[in-house]
Computed example of a mutant assay.
Amino acid sequence: MKKEYSAMPESMKKMETYGFSWMDFVTAIPSPLFVVTSYKSNGKPNACLQSWACFNGSSSGFYAILSSVNKSGHMYQTIKETGEAVLNFPSVDIYEKCTATITNNGFDNDEITLSGLTAEEAAKVHAPRIKECFLNLECRYLWEREMKDGDTHVLMCLEVVNICVDEVHLDEIIQGRYGEMGYLYNIHYPINPENFAGKSHDWIGILKKSKDMGEY
């Protein structure tokens, strides 16, 4: 039997949603985890652990759509100032170092080095890459839009201009991009509002290939 929810369930009304919609927690749709890196105006690397994004391409190019960028954060500020950034995708073995960027976020900090990671210059944009991440997408800012007028967060579109990827992850026979050492997904507070007791937390998920859809 299916349940219908068009208004916040009673069990969630006292829950801290941290600025997200209550629907985020009922649906718990996973989104890829990555670290956005750029340069602050003082030349120090900025790093922001991010999720809530999708990646789409057409004959005109390949694009990253960041769906929840806080206009008051360093990430938004630096991308608007420089017009460039790198999206760095970690495997689970360096995830804790990536989360350390959340606390090492002072304006005068080298947020990559302080978190135990290695900064290297990108090939096509003026932004640092994280060497330990198995995939780096070098991007240029295209546009942004508020979800609704006056919102504190924007939808931001970046054009991918260069891809850097570890060859062992590129080869599906050796390592590939999925499984235990591949892409990480943020599973946002999976809540059952029918029996929610006021306690929940995020999860990290991984992808597993399930069915071969045949050759193109």
Rank of each mutant, 00 (worst) to 15 (best):
S21G: 08
F34C: 01
K71D: 12
N109R: 10
K209H: 12
I102R: 14
A28V: 00
R140H: 13
I102S: 13
F107R: 06
W52Y: 15
N88R: 01
D149A: 14
F196M: 04
V86I: 00
E96W: 01
K13N: 15
C164S: 10
M147C: 12
P90N: 02
T103C: 11
G205I: 01
R129S: 11
C54N: 15
V86M: 02
K80M: 06
T103M: 15
M181D: 13
E194L: 00
L66M: 13
G19Q: 01
L155S: 13
T82K: 14
H169F: 02
Y216Q: 12
F62P: 09
N195T: 10
E138W: 07
D24Q: 09
Y5A: 12
N104W: 00
Y183M: 08
V161A: 05
A100H: 14
K40D: 06
G182I: 00
T101W: 11
I112N: 02
Y95F: 06
S6W: 15
S91G: 13
C139K: 02
N186D: 10
E111T: 04
S200V: 00
Y189A: 04
R140D: 14
N195H: 14
P30T: 00
P32A: 07
K209D: 11
M12R: 01
E194H: 06
D171E: 06
E4I: 01
K148C: 11
G83K: 02
D166V: 04
I130K: 03
G150F: 05
G43P: 05
L87E: 05
T82V: 06
D212V: 05
A53G: 06
N70M: 08
L49N: 08
A122H: 02
A28E: 08
Y216G: 13
M75N: 03
I29W: 09
M8G: 03
P190W: 00
E10D: 13
V161K: 03
F55E: 10
N56D: 13
K3Y: 15
V154I: 05
L207I: 08
F55H: 07
L137F: 10
L155M: 09
Y5W: 09
L155F: 15
S60W: 12
G150N: 05
L117E: 00
K209Q: 14
F25R: 03
S11K: 08
I206L: 09
L142F: 06
S21M: 04
W52E: 15
C133G: 01
E159V: 03
N88W: 09
G150C: 02
H126V: 09
V168Y: 05
I112P: 02
G73F: 00
G57Y: 04
C98P: 06
F62V: 08
H74N: 03
T113W: 10
N88S: 10
T82Q: 13
I79W: 00
K208F: 14
E16H: 14
A127P: 02
T113V: 08
E144L: 05
G73L: 05
D166P: 11
I65A: 07
R140L: 03
S38H: 02
A28C: 02
V35I: 03
Y76I: 01
E120N: 12
D24G: 10
I173K: 14
I65C: 09
E180P: 12
S31W: 07
P190E: 03
F20N: 07
N104E: 07
L135T: 12
L135Y: 03
V26D: 10
T118H: 07
